[in-house]
């Protein structure tokens, strides 16, 4: 992944092997964070991390869900919502919340280039999921910051 390459370039000289190892480690770390999120909050039944331009990075989703399509859709939704919030002078967007009959979808910024998308079960109290999702998004943001510093 080219962003990871850039992060590495900034910190030290790296060859392709470093890049691959680095990208694998980062993705594995993200998957662990997603697994923990699902474990800590039973209302959440799926989560994924993707880039703001719609590429999948890590997933913890139910069988048969295509993270590549969802990544593109999350980035489109978040980008449009960003615009609406900015143009109506309501500051910086925190998250997009989709409430639907079969559950909820939360889309959150997680640092500059990543997005966290969280899926909840039906009929849950959204507060709990929100709190956990916020925390994970912050953790991811911190992780990425550590990587680039």
């Amino acid at each position: 992944m080219d962003v990871i390459q850039e992060i590495i370039d900034k910190s030290h000289k790296a060859d392709m092997n470093d890049l691959e190892r680095y990208s694998k480690v980062l993705k594995a770390k993200l998957e662990i964070m997603l697994a923990e999120l699902l474990e800590e909050c039973s209302d959440i039944n799926g989560a994924m991390v993707s880039s703001t331009d719609g590429l999948a990075w890590a997933r913890k989703l139910q069988e048969g869900m295509d993270e590549n399509r969802f990544s593109a859709m999350s980035s489109a939704l978040l980008a449009l919502s960003d615009n609406l919030v900015r143009e109506t002078h309501q500051g910086q967007i925190r998250k997009v919340l989709l409430e639907s009959s079969g559950g909820n979808v939360l889309i959150l910024h997680a640092g500059k280039i990543l997005i966290l998308t969280v899926f909840t079960c039906e009929n849950v109290n959204i507060g709990m999921s929100l709190a956990h999702a916020n925390k994970t998004a912050e953790d991811i943001s911190e992780l990425m910051e550590q990587c680039s510093s």
């Binding site: 992944m1 080219d2 962003v3 880039s51 703001t52 331009d53 719609g54 590429l55 593109a72 980035s75 489109a76 939704l77 980008a79 449009l80 960003d82 615009n83 143009e87 280039i113």
Partner: peptide, 23 residues
Amino acid sequence: PVSTDVACSGEERAIKDTTTVAM
């Protein structure tokens, strides 16, 4: 215009800085 361009992170990075993700 309303623009939904964000920074490219994948292979397109070599060609362009930003790309449209919604419309």
